Computed example of a mutant assay.
Amino acid sequence: MKLLEIDARGRSCPEPVLLTKKGVESNPSGVKVMVDNITARENVKRFGKNAGYKVEVEEKDGEYILILSK
């Protein structure tokens, strides 16, 4: 399964969530979202769970990678 990659680093909410929403609309099987702050991480995570996705979070060097998959 190829995940659509979304780079939302440096963006403040609600932009990461809006980018994630557009991403899952164009690629419903899942997306990989990169963010660099806790607020964006939590908001994207909440959006993913509410939209019925399994959400995995990895932290690397102060940045977060969220994998949303069905």
Rank of each mutant, 00 (worst) to 15 (best):
43 N>Q: 15
26 S>C: 07
49 K>P: 01
31 V>R: 02
23 G>S: 07
15 E>I: 15
65 I>D: 04
26 S>K: 15
63 E>R: 15
62 G>P: 12
64 Y>N: 04
29 S>G: 07
8 A>S: 07
31 V>M: 03
5 E>N: 13
28 P>K: 11
55 V>R: 00
28 P>F: 08
47 F>E: 00
38 I>D: 12
39 T>R: 15
7 D>M: 08
45 K>E: 12
1 M>L: 11
32 K>E: 08
11 R>D: 05
28 P>H: 09
47 F>Q: 01
66 L>S: 02
12 S>V: 15
57 V>E: 12
62 G>R: 11
46 R>A: 10
27 N>H: 15
57 V>I: 15
15 E>H: 11
32 K>P: 02
37 N>D: 14
53 Y>Q: 00
42 E>A: 13
60 K>F: 09
42 E>M: 15
69 S>I: 12
25 E>D: 12
3 L>W: 09
66 L>R: 00
57 V>D: 00
67 I>P: 00
33 V>K: 04
67 I>G: 01
25 E>C: 08
1 M>W: 06
23 G>F: 08
51 A>E: 13
68 L>N: 00
10 G>V: 04
62 G>V: 09
14 P>D: 06
66 L>W: 00
34 M>W: 14
19 L>C: 01
36 D>T: 10
9 R>M: 05
11 R>W: 08
37 N>T: 05
52 G>H: 07
20 T>P: 04
64 Y>C: 11
13 C>R: 10
21 K>V: 07
34 M>V: 07
32 K>F: 05
39 T>F: 13
18 L>V: 13
56 E>C: 04
15 E>A: 14
30 G>H: 09
20 T>L: 11
48 G>H: 00
47 F>A: 02
8 A>Q: 04
12 S>Y: 11
26 S>V: 13
1 M>Y: 10
